[in-house]
Every structure is written in C-alpha cells, then in structure tokens.
C-alpha cells in the first residue's frame, strides 16, 4: 500500500530535526557523531520551509503521475511499481536539471558539492525493514507521520464524526 508523508503543520516547531535525521540517514555511517566528519558531507532531502506564521517540512510528494519521471530523458528517475516511491538512479542521471524545473513543489534540487540530484527516496530501505522514514522518526513533536491515503481519509472521517456529534441537537448534520 502506498504510504505518504503527512505533516501536521500546527505541530511543526521549525526545529529542523528532520533535516538532520535525513542527512544522517543518507550518510555513509548513519551515525550523527560520525556523519558530521564525513567528506563529502551528507545532504538532507527535506527542507523546513517558513510560511507566514508557520513552518513546514517540504519533501518529494512521490506524485502518482510524476512530472519528473515523465521529463527525465534518461529514465534515471523511476518507480519500481505503482506503490513504490520515486527514486533516482545516479548512474543514469546526466544532470540536465529538467526534473528540477518540472517539479511543481520545488523539492528536487541539484547539489553542487556532490554534483548530483537531491530528492527524497522516502527511505525505502528503512521502509522495507518495517521502519518509518528517518524524518518521521526524527521529528520530536510528532508533526510528521507516514500514512496511506486510506488512513488519512479514515482519520479525517473520525474527526468529522466528532464534530457532527458535538453539533447534534437540532442542527443539521
């Protein structure tokens, strides 16, 4: 079942712990105190954006109909199957940056230091092991969750039922 990263914006305190967790997960050592000394430095694939009065972590949405996959001339961006995340095959990538231009959310970037594209791979190795993505695990306030669309829908329905129940007593449901 396809999972997605879900952000509860009200819970995000802008601490950027998700950025650190992501960079460590994509390091050689996967250990903070060792990763900090690696060359080239590990890079984060999630960025905390600042809105008007709110902060929100931004990362690849792993679109169903992904513009980046469509535009990639070498098929370096791909997904293994319909439920899998959009990932990058570094060897195929020629660095044309078309995906950077095509992404509607601005969550694919070019890392000048590593001369490679940076995008969220939804920590597919962790997920295969039954773990949650590093950014979700690294969030201290519970602002990030990893859920299927069905779970999101079910959650919203449950919340609206509470609202309806609270409004019962004459008002139209």
């Amino acid at each position: 079942m396809k999972h997605m990263l879900v952000v509860n914006v009200r819970k995000c305190l802008g601490c950027k712990s998700c950025e650190v967790a992501c960079a460590v997960e994509h390091s050689e050592s996967r250990d903070l105190f060792t990763a900090i000394q690696e060359k080239p430095a590990p890079r984060t694939r999630v960025r905390v954006g600042q809105g008007e009065g709110f902060a929100v972590p931004l990362q690849c949405r792993h679109c169903e109909d992904a513009p980046c996959i469509k535009i990639c001339p070498t098929a370096a961006l791909y997904r293994a199957d319909a439920d899998s995340p959009v990932v990058l095959n570094q060897d195929q990538c020629i660095g044309c940056n078309w995906c950077v231009l095509a992404c509607p959310f601005g969550v694919i970037s070019f890392d000048a230091q590593g001369r490679t594209l940076l995008k969220c791979d939804q920590c597919f190795e962790r997920v295969e092991r039954g773990e949650r993505p590093a950014c979700v695990e690294g969030c201290p306030s519970g602002a990030l969750a990893f859920k299927t669309a069905d779970e999101v829908v079910a959650g919203k329905q449950a919340a609206s039922l509470v609202q309806i129940e609270a409004g019962l007593g004459g008002e139209d449901a």
């Binding site: 601490c15 712990s17 650190v20 460590v24 903070l32 105190f33 690294g138 969030c139 201290p140």
Partner: peptide, 9 residues
C-alpha cells in the same frame, strides 16, 4: 527520543 541533533553537536 529523538534527541535534538543540533543540541548534541
């Protein structure tokens, strides 16, 4: 857990 990476560093 998780403890803040910025604080640890």
């Amino acid at each position: 857990q998780p403890q803040c990476g910025y604080g640890q560093l």
